[in-house]
Design a protein around this nucleic acid. Structure first.
Length: 107
RNA sequence: GGAGUACGCCGGGUGGCCGCGCCCUCGCAAGAGGGUGAGGAAAGUCCGGGCUUCAUUGGGCAGGGUGCAGGAUAACGUCCUGUCAGGGUGACCUGAAGGAAAGUGCCACAGAAACAUACCGCUGCGCGCUCGCGUGCAGCAAGGGUGAAAUCGUGAGGUAAGAGCUCACGGAGCCGCGCGGAGACGCGCGCUCGGGUAAACCCCACCCGAAGCAAGGUUGUUCGAGCCCCAACCGUGCGCUAACGCGCGCGCUGGGCGGGCGGCCCGCCCGAAACGAGCAAAAACCGCACCGAGGCCUGCGGCGACGCAGGCCCCAGAGAGAUGGCCAUCGGCUGGGCGCAGGCCCAGCUACAGAAUCCGGCUUACAGGCGUACUCCACAG
RNA sequence: GCCGGCGUAGCUCAGUGGUAGAGCAGGACUUUUGUAAAGUUCAGGCCGUCAGUUCGAUCCUGACCGCCGGCU
């Protein structure tokens, strides 16, 4: 079972972008907010835009980020809302580096 | 052995840890077990179809596409076998390859002239004189020069000078005839010998209704405009009149007006059948993931594309979107080092790329490797 | 996913089968005590890339590349 739930609706993404706390690092931009009432686990959205690369590259980045989050939340379950936006540089960043960056950002 | 051509394929294997979608079974549930899960291009969206909705009584115009022949196919701009032209020593490759003696347009600059022409010229005759030039008329298109292109090429004859004017060899054209071929076309004979451009308009032949799965279906609701007008005759009803008749309404017919036939016209239909606009909409289910122009194997027919028959198989599918991440090891290729050699060691590289309605093609991207057939060169027997 | 449109000077855009332009911006000069404005003048482009048709392509045809938009 996955350790987090996906954000689904367009307006939820928009709300998190506007109201969430913003945090930037070389490869990623993060928006975080406290969990909404009714959330059973962390609610996460991952955005990988067209500027990152072609479909194969975008899929790889998204899967790596999802893998890191899964590992992280299974060790330390957390209820929160999170939006991760991959920046273009993330395409060429190795897995270990990406994991370190994301884990540090999550605290 | 080297260089190359064509066709068909593969494009990592094994193991460990942590994970994901869908389906089935069990379970009240949390969950557990089992099965299954990207490509040759899934890409670009360039063609062709299936499917869905709209339109459909028919015709025309406009528009778009294709363009050697015959065939294959559900269809195609694709494929196959040929023809012709061009390229290559060759195996083979490439070609939007109908029509320019239907018509119109365009062909810059240069050049006399780009469509029918004569600048420098050549020749004959006449005249003039300063006696080798000028000029008039007639003939010629060989030479010069310009251009991408100047009207068959070369040689000989011929002539005042010349010219397919004649001859030989060669080239081209369309028509006619004969022969061969299913045809494109080829061969022979006769005839003719004045450009190019149709990926310019165009002509000819053939083909095409429009949109697209965010199509569309099922499950609702609100609003807007609109319900028509005119008329001689005819029919009919009502009213007035003693009656002839008159008036009004309706119908039929005709005309108008409005609407529809997705670009236009003819023509047709309708006048309340239905039309238009919005919200719902942040939704669910279907379409849609088992049955197909399906895949694999074998046989038969065909030069081949392909077709037919039999057997076996069921083969990804969501709706923020699964098919992954990390590690080890074995491979593969390239380079370097060591070794007589089998081989060993080190380093680097291990591609292009990710289904969303489904098929058939085309095009583009791609580390590296395999197989079959054939060609040329070198060497050996 | 499906369907459209556009690439010309640093920027915004014309253009057409025959030597590629305009405005703004830039350089130099004139004018001014100086600056601005104005005027004169100069430079800047393989017309997105690669093939094909043509004597000749920015233009016509095809394939790629990049950018922008619409459809629930």
């Amino acid at each position: 079972m996955r350790r987090y739930v996906s954000l689904r609706r367009r307006n939820e993404f928009a709300r998190l972008r506007q109201r969430g706390r913003r945090q930037a690092s070389p490869n990623l931009t993060l928006f975080t907010a406290p969990a909404a009432p009714g959330d059973q686990a962390a609610v996460v959205g991952i955005t990988v835009g067209g500027s990152v690369g072609a479909a194969v590259v975008r899929n790889l980045v998204r899967r790596r980020l999802a893998g890191i989050l899964d590992e992280h939340f299974s060790a330390r379950p957390q209820r929160m809302r999170l939006l991760i936006i991959a920046r273009p540089r993330a395409a060429g960043t190795p897995y270990a580096e990406l994991r370190e960056e994301l884990v540090r950002a999550l605290g």
